[in-house]
Simulated assay, not measured.
Amino acid sequence: MTASPKLDKVDRKILEILQRNAKITNAQLSKEIGLSPAPTLERVKKLEQSGVIDSYHAKLNTSKIGLGISTFVQIKLTGHDKESIKTFINAINKIDEVIECHHVTGSSDFILRVIAKDIASYQQLMLDKVNEVPVVDSLQSLVILSTFKDSKTLPVPEDEKLKI
């Protein structure tokens, strides 16, 4: 088995640019990184095939599509066994309004990021879906009042150990 090539300076630059603008043309990307189009495309394909680039997404304006409430919800489960966790995760994955689910340390077991049309819709969602998951012991909602940073751009480390 051969060693994977490392992320070099050009790869990191490609990743930074694509995170800011995934719709950039290969021609424009090649200009920005200083390579011709063919090797640029080859590098992007290598980053995609290796799994470094997972996918491409359109970021939607929540208020323009009628989603006015965003919350974090801290969840405690009734048990911490594999079956309870699996039951919870399976149920949460079926709720479209739950846009993130994180297993965490501390006083809660999970933190969810939930988005809804309004407070009434959010309340109904909590009552009808999240509270009905049999392994949910308690939940605490934190309504997001304002967001001052919502970056989807990850810093790409210069660590020599990063490999693709």
Rank of each mutant, 00 (worst) to 15 (best):
Q74C: 13
D54E: 15
E97W: 06
H103Q: 10
D118C: 10
L127I: 12
E83D: 14
K23G: 11
S30V: 00
K76L: 06
F72T: 02
I111M: 09
V130S: 03
T40A: 07
Q124Y: 10
V52G: 02
I111A: 02
R12V: 06
S70M: 08
A58L: 13
K129M: 10
V104E: 04
V52W: 00
R20N: 12
V44N: 04
H103I: 10
S70K: 12
D96F: 08
L125F: 08
V98H: 04
I95G: 03
K46D: 01
K117C: 08
F110A: 03
I85V: 13
K6N: 06
K86G: 07
F72Q: 11
L15F: 00
L15Q: 01
M126I: 15
L47F: 08
G79I: 02
V44M: 02
K129D: 12
I119G: 02
S107N: 14
L112K: 04
K117T: 11
K23E: 11
D81F: 09
D118G: 07
Q123W: 08
F110C: 01
D128I: 05
I119Y: 14
R12G: 02
L60A: 12
K9S: 10
A38V: 08
S121F: 09
K13M: 11
Q124L: 14
Y56T: 12
D11H: 12
N21W: 01
T62S: 11
V130N: 03
V98R: 01
S30Y: 00
I99T: 15
G106P: 08
K76G: 03
T62L: 15
G66R: 04
N131C: 13
A120K: 15
L29I: 01
E97V: 05
S55R: 15
A27S: 08
T105Q: 10
D118E: 11
I89G: 06
L29P: 00
Q19E: 06
R20P: 00
A116W: 07
T71K: 06
I53H: 01
N26C: 08
R20F: 06
K82N: 12
L41Y: 06
E100F: 14
K13A: 11
K117L: 13
L7M: 05
S63M: 13
A22C: 09
R12A: 10
L35P: 00
L127A: 15
N26F: 07
I92N: 02
S108F: 14
A120W: 09
T78D: 09
D11L: 00
T25M: 04
R12S: 08
V98C: 10
I24G: 01
A38M: 09
D137H: 14
A120R: 15
L7A: 03
S36C: 05
S107P: 13
